[in-house]
Amino acid sequence: MAGGRVIISVASGKGGTGKTLVATSMVLSLSDKGRVQLLDCDVEEPDAHLFLKPTFTHREAVSIPVPRVDERKCTYCGKCAEVCVYNAIAVMKEKVLIFPELCHGCGACSYLCPEGAISEEGKEIGVVESGYSNGVRFVHGKLSIGELMAPPIIRRVKQHVASEGIIIIDVSPGTSCPVVDAVKGSDFCLLVTEPTPFGLNDLVLAVELVRKLNIPCGVVLNRSGVGDRGVEEYCHRGNIPILLTIPLDIEIAAFYSRGIPLVEGIPQWRESFLNLFNKIGEILNK
């Protein structure tokens, strides 16, 4: 916790375990505690706005720089194709082919072109929208349909991280690059799981990820009451705190299905989410 700011990411490994439920209820419970911000970094399938229904005040396109060759200057020397490890450029006898969907926007081709024939132009791959909802500052990113690369959009969403206050980050499922980009820089990572063999398998992977990033973590066990005790036994053995347990409950599922945050549907839950936040604070202050 640096300079009056705490960043908590909510991740899971397995999809559909309740990340968005936890992230949205947590920010709403904390909204009278000063500046609170929710960043939805699940840019492939952002859903937090369905629950918080923010008023958007700002929208920016996210582009990645892709090369554009000035064929009047180009000598077809092939340097650009040689340095591009993504195979996004092919140089023929008198033609340069560019495959923008393979380009990562590293900029090596334009910098290294001996003729100065390559400039860069933006190719839009998604948007970042920001606004507010019920005292919560809200930012999310959306990858455009058919685009491959989520990380540049996630990084742009994270440029909006406030300089103070409580920041909650909703992360996509999995353990690869989009999750790393979303979780990186957090003070704490909450891992939401369910008490099933799938939940356990993916929790183990998620724990490995946050440990690799050196971020302390704790577990939220959702839909407790079904399944088995594998997750609890694993957490006990590995000394990973279970900070909140949410039962499998038809009423909770019904509010979720209608896009109603848990703490609005059943206000008694507010206390539980405040407790969750306090427990995280205790761990961080140790």
């Binding site: 492939e44 491959l148 989009p178 299905s257």
Partner: peptide, 25 residues
């Protein structure tokens, strides 16, 4: 899950996509 890189990679050239959804917003 998702719609990005690994999804597009698992989809391209397949004969059929079966999309499993649930009745939530």
């Amino acid at each position: 899950p998702g719609i990005g890189c690994p999804v597009i990679s698992s989809l391209s050239g397949a004969n059929l996509a079966l999309l499993v959804t649930e009745p939530t917003l």
